[in-house]
Amino acid sequence: AFRTRRLDAGPYTFVAADALVMKVREDGRVANVHAMLAVGVNADGHREILGLQTSSAEDGAGWLGFFRDLTARGLTGVRLVTSEAHAGLVAAIGATLPGASWQRCRTHYAANLMAITPKTSWPWVKTLLHSVYDQPDADSVHAQFDRLLDAVEQKLPKVAAHLDTARADVLAFSAFPKEVWRQ
């Protein structure tokens, strides 16, 4: 009943989506199952689990079915979706939530960035990246992001290129009022 309930506490302005791979027993063998989850911020400003669905693969078709189910149950008013940069997931968001902005999840992005950052540089690159999110207003966010690019450009050109390519994905939150950045 919970997984098929109407989503009538909306509008759900902000939604976060992610998946977790779990090993389960099926017919006497162990198989991977992808548990897709969406959490939204409801009209009262509280987080609410919107949906949980399992799939045999975390692919575009699975995500599209998941988001179609959410919208059919009443998911409305979404202005920003945060998720990993899985191409099928991003495409499903675009197909089912027209007009919603998309932002790459900070945690997933930091992990992707650290994968190309030399381990000895992790502490200062992480510190600079997190300083972008701690700014008081949108102009300061973008200015700090530029300072981050300047700081890594000479020593870590691959990191700088990665950051520059992901600018819009990482900074989408700054288009919203400061009061809702933490939501």
Rank of each mutant, 00 (worst) to 15 (best):
W124I: 08
W122N: 05
D18K: 07
K119R: 13
V78Q: 14
T165H: 12
H162G: 00
L129H: 05
V81P: 01
L148W: 10
R73L: 08
H130W: 12
E58N: 03
L64A: 15
P123V: 07
Q103E: 04
G28Q: 12
C105V: 13
V39D: 00
K119N: 01
G51P: 04
A172C: 04
A160C: 13
G77A: 10
V39W: 06
T107W: 14
K178H: 09
S55R: 09
G94L: 01
A111F: 05
D150T: 13
W63S: 02
V78E: 05
P157F: 03
A111W: 04
F173S: 01
G65P: 05
D146A: 14
G45I: 05
T96H: 06
L50I: 08
G74W: 07
A100T: 09
V15D: 07
L75H: 05
G88H: 04
D18N: 10
H142D: 06
D164Q: 13
A172K: 11
A143Q: 13
H108L: 08
D150Y: 01
A160W: 03
A168P: 00
D8I: 07
G74P: 08
R6V: 13
L50S: 04
Q154R: 11
R106F: 10
P157N: 13
A168S: 14
Q135I: 12
W181C: 02
T165E: 15
A115D: 15
G99L: 13
